[in-house]
Design a protein around this nucleic acid. Structure first.
Length: 837
DNA sequence: ATTCTGCCTG
DNA sequence: CAGGCAGAAT
């Protein structure tokens, strides 16, 4: 095909010449403009949310460092103007601020771990609230009730100053600076009374809201959020609708700066899909959860510290008592006093009651002089464990006593106990270490591998001091906490992502959402199509939110995927996995044929991502494929600099609306191409109603069709030239049938599994296209760099209506009249949740 | 200024 | 198939 080659060369030379036609500009414009308006509106709110989330997440990461006030960044744009907005807006702001305060208070409250944030919050509110008399005017400005904005860290941030300055206008500086600084209700008491009723009402509202949110992730979404959700749905389906007042109000706070950030960050690349969604309510939920986690974390840390202290003390005691044992175990190195003390650090300091010399001596005696003593001890221990009476060897007991063990008459008994306890303690210590590790992982982002990072405290596996009872409570508590944590942590180990350089905070926010997602995922149309290959094992839960939750329940913790995050942004129905885990050889269904490819392509982008490789490598060697996949996905999101999109991440995507395009969507798009080559963005929205549209999604879909067209026209040109080369003289001589090579090529591309009956109309269009190309080439028009333009113009008019069935999220199943995929998937995946088709 | 498109490249 | 780009349309 010399011609073609030269042609492409020509094109290349004159590149950038505008070849495209006015195609679709008209149709698309309406749609796009509408869509644009909608997204734009939403965008601001998103940006706001994003920033809030971001700040929160960063807060959580550094929280342990007591950088706590980072949370104040929550509302970068939260100037005075914000406050003046509508009712709902101020409410949301108030909430945010409340949450903010909660964070601050959390630090302050540390000594009272048991206290709830809310109660403290409210108390403080009461105490402080008198500060702003004028506040009464605006009931909604509850934030004024929290003059403690600057409370935990005055230097922390500017944003906080906003709130601070706000209140300072009305109240004294002290209020602003020191929440605890002045005795509650002194001068302000009267004032407070004036506003008492009002404040009560306010508090009640706030409390209710917070309570509702804090109850559980699954909780009923507050009215506000529900509305939002509804609105979102409306927005998707009917873009013409104006935003309800609420919406616009909510957007108000974020408008200016959110937009800026958004656009600036967007400049880098056109990024990908990022799910978009709920706004205020989500933010609130996220914040709340963050708070809760943070508090838990802190408490846990405190307890751990206590435990460690106790452990040290116990250790000391232990060394005091069991020096000999330790020594003998440790070797013969310690034959004399000096060595002993060395071996047991801290012991010399604290322990030094009476035993110093005696102990040592006894050690010597035991080791050298009286080996029998040792045996006695061991026996005693055994006896203890066997619940035998220690009276068996009164004599030896006495001996040991004489030796200076210093124990009471029941030393044997005590010893046995202690040894038993020691064993327990070892287990405990292990647990402690684990807990500690976990906590650290959470607290400090830049921690690579939790596993090895055992606390320095790490007491050698030798024996630990007998666990005094006092120790146990803590231990139990810790354990319980750990378990509780587990529920939280496991679903969103994301925090570990935080440790990765390339990953921005926002990513973590998504994590937060996970638990929520899980709950809300009825998953209606999973496994629409087939696709999946063979063994269920290949499926990775991480890519399937609902299945994730489901599998979570059934899989042992160790199998839980460490990187669930990606699901948010990606595929739901994605059968994925095969390519990652299994090279794709064992794909059985014809349908699945194209899957690997799609999957691969999906992954391609991620793979192309810069930091990808080492990231997942370092992160979870255990799950190479899946990890890579999910991580990549997360990275993609991370990379997506579009703040709006980031803000779009929401936990509510579960039900019907997906936040990303799955391979099945791609498949569907391909099938749709048989009907329409130039779908408008509006049309796409209608036909992909199960996807939450944002700019990224729209762009991607458009890009898909663009790619489809590209391939289509390339094929057309190719075959046209081929026909010419073959000596065809008239366009009429050519036809496109289902048997012809051209069709096969096309079908292979768009309908690889061949499980869809290509409409005749497509054949006609293909034929027309082919002839157009043929004629154009024959006429020598291909010398014109934009010679295809005319053809495009013709072809774009040949779009036919896409059958209604394509509007159904489940259309693939119906179109492919193949339930195999569904059943297969369900079985293979062993995911009951998915049966909720 | 934004959106959409096609072209080229990987 | 996606990223990046440039051009055109709005």
């Amino acid at each position: 095909m010399p011609d073609h080659d030269s042609d492409s060369l020509l094109n290349r030379q004159t590149k950038r010449r505008r070849v495209d036609i006015g195609v679709k500009r008209t149709v698309g414009s309406t749609a796009s403009s509408t869509a644009a308006a909608t997204t734009d509106n939403i965008a601001r709110a998103k940006a706001a949310i994003f920033s809030a989330m971001n700040s929160l997440s960063s807060h959580s990461h550094h929280g342990s460092d007591n950088d706590s006030m980072e949370c104040s960044v929550v509302q970068p744009h939260g100037g005075p103007g914000v406050v003046s907005a509508g009712d709902s807006e101020s409410k949301s702001n108030v909430l945010r601020k409340l949450l903010k305060r909660a964070n601050s208070y959390e630090d302050a409250m540390m000594p009272f771990p048991g206290t709830t944030i809310i109660s403290q919050l409210l108390k403080n509110n009461i105490a402080k609230n008198g500060g702003g008399p004028e506040r009464g005017e605006r009931g909604d400005r509850v934030e004024s009730g929290f003059p403690g904005s600057g409370l935990s860290n005055a230097s922390s941030d500017a944003p906080q100053e906003d709130a601070c300055s706000n209140s300072s206008q009305d109240s004294t500086p002290q209020e602003c600076l020191s929440p605890f600084g002045r005795p509650p209700g002194l001068a302000t008491f009267d004032i407070e009374r004036l506003n008492d009723e009002h404040l009560r009402a306010k508090r009640a509202r706030v409390e209710n809201i917070i309570r509702g949110m804090s109850h559980s992730p699954s909780v009923v979404v507050p009215a506000a959020s529900r509305h939002e959700r509804d609105h979102e749905m409306d927005g998707e389906r009917d873009l013409e609708l104006d935003c309800p007042p609420r919406q616009s109000q909510q957007q108000a706070p974020s408008s200016p700066r959110g937009g800026e950030v958004c656009s600036s960050s967007r400049e880098n690349k056109r990024k990908q899909r990022l799910p978009q969604q709920q706004q205020q309510s989500f933010t609130q939920l996220v914040c709340q959860r963050k708070e809760q986690k943070q508090e838990e974390r802190r408490q846990l840390k405190l307890q751990l510290e206590d435990m460690q202290k106790q452990l040290r003390q116990l250790q000391e005691k232990f060394f005091q008592i069991y020096d000999s044992t330790d020594d003998s175990e440790h070797t013969d190195l310690h034959n004399d006093i000096g060595n002993m003390s060395e071996d047991s650090p801290g012991r010399s300091d604290t322990g030094g009651d009476d035993r110093g010399g005696d102990d040592l001596r006894s050690d010597n005696e035991m080791a050298d002089l009286d080996p029998g003593h040792f045996l006695d001890r061991a026996r005693a221990l055994l006896q203890e464990q066997a619940l035998l009476a220690d009276t068996e060897k009164p004599r030896r007991d006495g001996l040991s006593r004489n030796k200076g063990q210093g124990g009471p008459g029941s030393s044997m008994h005590a010893e046995g106990k202690q040894l038993a306890e020691t064993l327990k303690q070892e287990l405990n210590s292990a647990m402690t270490q684990v807990v500690d590790t976990v906590v650290k992982v959470f607290a400090k982002p830049p921690r690579p591998t939790p596993q090895q990072a055992f606390p320095p405290l790490s007491i050698p596996p030798e024996r630990f001091p007998a666990a005094v009872n006092g120790d146990n409570p803590n231990f139990h508590t810790t354990n319980q906490r750990l378990q509780c944590f587990g529920d939280v942590i496991i679903p969103n180990p994301l925090d570990s992502f935080a440790s990765m350089p390339g990953i921005p905070g926002p990513t973590n926010d998504q994590t937060e959402a996970l638990p929520l997602v899980v709950r809300k995922t009825p998953s209606e149309h999973h496994h629409q199509s087939s696709a999946v290959g063979a063994h269920g094992g290949s499926h990775h839960p991480a890519l399937h939110p609902s299945s994730l939750s489901a599998s979570m329940g059934f899989s042992p913790p160790s199998f839980r995927h460490p990187f669930p995050l990606p699901l948010m942004g990606y595929p739901f129905q994605t059968p994925i996995g095969p390519p990652t885990v299994y090279p794709g050889k064992d794909r059985t269904s014809p349908d699945s044929m194209d899957l690997p490819r799609e999957t691969t392509s999906l992954r391609t982008k991620m793979a192309s991502g810069h930091h990808l490789g080492h990231h997942h490598r370092s992160c979870s060697p255990a799950h190479p494929g899946s990890t890579a996949e999910s991580l990549s996905l997360s990275l993609i999101k991370s990379e997506c600099s579009d703040l709006q999109d980031m803000a779009d991440i929401s936990p509510y995507s579960g039900s019907n609306i997906q936040e990303g395009l799955s391979p099945n969507h791609l498949k569907k798009a391909k099938l749709m191409f048989f009907y329409t080559r130039y779908p408008s963005s509006n049309m796409l929205k209608m036909f992909f109603s199960d996807v939450k549209f944002n700019r990224c999604i729209t762009s991607q879909l458009i890009k898909w069709f663009s790619n489809f067209r590209e391939f289509y026209y390339i094929q057309m040109e190719k075959f046209a030239r081929q026909a010419i080369n073959d000596g065809v003289t008239g366009a009429e001589e050519m036809s496109v049938s289902r048997d012809c090579e051209l069709f096969r090529a096309l079908n292979m591309h768009y309908n690889k599994a061949n499980d869809f009956e290509v409409p005749d109309r497509f054949l006609e269009v293909a034929e027309i296209t082919l002839r157009e190309f043929f004629n154009a080439i024959v006429a020598g028009k291909d010398v014109d760099p934009s010679w295809k333009k005319a053809i495009y113009k013709v072809i774009c008019k040949l779009d036919s209506e896409v059958p209604e069935i394509f509007k159904s999220p489940n259309c693939l199943q119906e179109l492919l009249h193949d339930s195999r995929g569904i059943l297969t998937n369900r079985f293979l995946l062993g995911c009951p949740m998915d049966s909720a088709l």
